[in-house]
Nucleic acid binder design. Sequence first.
DNA 1: CGTATGACGTGCA
DNA 2: GTGCACGCCATAC
Length: 96
Amino acid sequence: MKSLQEKVLRLVSQISRGKVSTYKEIAKEAGSPRAWRAVGNVLNKNRDPKIPCHRVIRSDSKVGGYRHGTKRKIALLKKEGIIINSHGKATQRFRK
DNA sequence: CGTATGACGTGCA
DNA sequence: GTGCACGCCATAC
């Protein structure tokens, strides 16, 4: 039985560049549709350089937060090709 | 073992 | 449309 963290990290690392996913979707794919809370926690505590955690946004299409700073996350997403609205929303498509 | 926290989500005023 | 409050899971202390 893999820890939630392992599943989450794996799914996040599977996200293609230029695309984003949501905490809820990841939690659902991880096997716990109600664990989006834990998903965010895992990513926060486990800052892995090989995990594009900045590609994970909220279900509202909002960028959400980032351990390094939300601004940083937005900048990375923009570099990836994701367009962020003035309201902090990712107008680009999400999921893989 | 029990309490508190968190990069959240949804509902209601 | 905006703001507040409650609910939820897993992990850390």
